[in-house]
Design a binder for these strands. Structure first.
Lengths: 144, 144
DNA sequence: AACACTTGTAACTAAAATTATTACATGTAA
DNA sequence: TTACATGTAATAATTTTAGTTACAAGTGTT
């Protein structure tokens, strides 16, 4: 199965804050760009806020990035929106037979192997920043 | 969310074929080791068969690896059991607003970035073989 | 102070996917 | 033919995601 689009939406939100930085980026405005519900946007922004990636205040319309976008990586967003719990990208079947050599040891054996693959993926996400995303969006826009 | 345990079960099955190679590895026997249903095991073995990783024949009990286990990587199993469609590890929200600069371009921008991370993960899986898994299981077993 | 507007959250619904289970047709061999 | 195994479809149960509604709480203007 796929990783929740909450991650993609989180990236969308941060990119939008930059591209549309002159305006008031209310949850309703952002929801219109993402094409979803304002409540969902507020929920995701709340997660980004907890991870100290954006600044928002109750009652005041709009959100702002909490730091320079070249210092926020896709990995930061990925962690912030908690689409996957730590070391749980791959699920491993529970309760294999403890009376079987394979059943007894399989979890401890493949756990670290799966984690290594997960970390490789996360490392790749760490190589891209929101600034890169914004640059690419603007480049594509200019080419039209 | 997590990637289906079908992947972990696929690895379990292949490891079991080696560790228990003297015996008849019927779907019922394997199911007892994995602790699940024989029908599920047959379904997964069917996928491994289609990927030419195991040999099975209708009516005849037991399955065998189709090649040397040092030549079957976790990546092969991952692809065989189709837990994730090609380039779809990360889902991207559909129908963003085409009248918005970000909405119009976000999919094309983050798609390749997400794919790169996905490929990094798959590459890591390609570095480990079922033979490595079996070695580790036997090492852990001997240490007890 | 009243009003309009916004964020923060909880609760609920709907839709989708995974896993488990049942059933049975098909194939093999004694 | 009998016993047993695989192949596969259909269904149910569980879990998760995404979408929606509702409303309390915060802010600023008039």
């Amino acid at each position: 199965m796929s990783i929740s689009s909450r991650f993609a939406v989180g990236v969308h939100i941060l990119a939008l804050l930059e591209v549309n930085k002159g305006e008031q980026n209310s949850s309703e405005f952002i929801a219109a760009s993402v094409n979803t519900n304002p409540a969902l946007i507020r929920k995701i922004i709340g997660m980004l806020k907890k991870a100290e990636l954006v600044k928002v205040r109750p009652g005041i319309a709009g959100a702002q990035p909490a730091k320079d976008l070249s210092e926020i990586t896709l990995h930061d967003v990925y962690k912030a929106v908690q689409v996957v719990q730590e070391k749980e990208l791959f699920s491993i079947h529970e309760n294999p037979n403890p009376d079987c050599t394979v059943g007894k040891n399989i979890q401890d054996t493949i756990g670290p192997m799966f984690s290594a693959a997960e970390q490789a993926m996360e490392k790749a996400l760490g190589n891209v920043t929101i600034a890169d995303v914004v640059d690419d969006i603007l480049k594509k826009e200019a080419a039209q």
